[in-house]
Computed example of a mutant assay.
Amino acid sequence: MLLDFPLSIIAASLLAFFVSYFSIVWLIKRKNASVLDYPNSRSLHTVPVPRVGGVGLLFGALSVWIAFSAVLPVPVWLGIIALSVISFVDDIWSMPVGYRLFVHTLTALGFCITLLLDAYGWLPVMICALAVIWTSNLFNFMDGSDGLAGGMVLVGFGYYGLAAYLSGNVNFALVNFSLAAASLGFLFHNFYPARIFLGDVGAVPLGYFAAVMGLLGWINDLWSLWLPLLIFSPFIADATATLIKRSFRGEKIWMAHREHYYQRMVQSGFGHRNTALLGYGLMLIVGACALWVNNQDMNIQFMAAAIWGFIYLGLMLMADLGKKPYSGDI
């Protein structure tokens, strides 16, 4: 199968991996107090760790897109610039939530209005904009355990790339495979014990990419909307269920906490490594299912999504009815 891939995709992926890997090596060596993530009562790490790994990951992917003249809509480029800047500033100086959410909203609306309004009208635009905003933030919420978010990016965009290639769109396949490869370069430094974190500068833009790449594939008839929803459903299910529960309890949903299911797994004694490996297995299985149902009748796609919904519900109920998480050393 690899031999059938265009050389442009292989070359772009290799370049994205090496640029990301060595950029992050440089970032790790240049430790600075302003970009260190210091442990607190809500952290799952115990020593200060650099939190700008997303800079190297994004540099690996975006530089390859430019080098290979990847074609993407202008709103995507503008959106990623705006999100990267505001997120990097937040990593250093902790921007107020309102400022960040304002930029997230502008980028989501800019993308959805430009690409969806004429064909679909205002209601789908608003629904999709909310989805983009939520996905941008949920990646940040789920980036709290060594290797987990990096693996989600690797698997998720790897499946996007494969789906695009199977649909005959080499340019879009190159874009997504490059993101996956750059994530692999990051993952070499982020897998337990992590020497660097994504930070907001990585997590927020990658969440944005997960949403807009999924929508672009749908707009260009490469896949149905079920494919991106299923591929990233492990993150979507955990973050959304946790948000709803905290909202019902009247808690400030934007405040850092340790109540996500993956965080509770780490605290229970399962550890960062095993949590990440279990997550990878789940992501691979659900992604393969998404790729398969993409070519099936819409009723089958809906049924597959419903089945996975019940699986997640069952797993969460088991976790909620189980023992309280262990709060000692991790």
Rank of each mutant, 00 (worst) to 15 (best):
S87H: 00
A237V: 09
G161W: 11
D146A: 14
A131T: 12
F191A: 15
F59G: 06
N294Q: 12
G110F: 04
A70F: 02
L179Q: 03
W308C: 15
I231R: 02
R51S: 12
F270L: 15
I80Q: 07
Y312M: 14
D146S: 12
G156M: 05
R273P: 08
W134D: 02
V85A: 08
P234H: 09
E251N: 05
I311K: 09
D143K: 00
G207F: 07
F59N: 03
L222Y: 06
L313H: 08
L27F: 09
D320M: 04
F177M: 14
V71R: 14
W223V: 05
W93G: 00
N137P: 07
D238C: 13
L116F: 15
M318A: 12
L78W: 11
A210L: 12
N294F: 08
I244Y: 15
L206N: 11
R195P: 12
W254H: 14
S20I: 00
R264L: 11
L187Q: 04
N295I: 01
M1Q: 02
V25T: 09
F22G: 05
V212N: 07
Q301S: 07
A305E: 01
L58S: 11
G271V: 10
I285S: 06
V201C: 15
S63K: 13
I330H: 11
I10N: 01
Y280F: 14
F248L: 15
V132H: 05
V132G: 07
L27E: 03
M126R: 00
G250A: 06
F188G: 09
F177L: 14
M126P: 02
K31Y: 00
R249Q: 13
K31I: 01
H272V: 03
F310V: 15
L321D: 13
F302H: 04
N137D: 03
R246W: 06
G161S: 12
F235I: 14
L106N: 02
G185H: 13
G250R: 07
G328P: 14
Q263S: 10
W218G: 03
L36H: 00
I219M: 12
G110E: 00
A210I: 09
W134N: 03
S43C: 07
F111Y: 05
G161Q: 11
L148F: 11
H45W: 02
G217K: 10
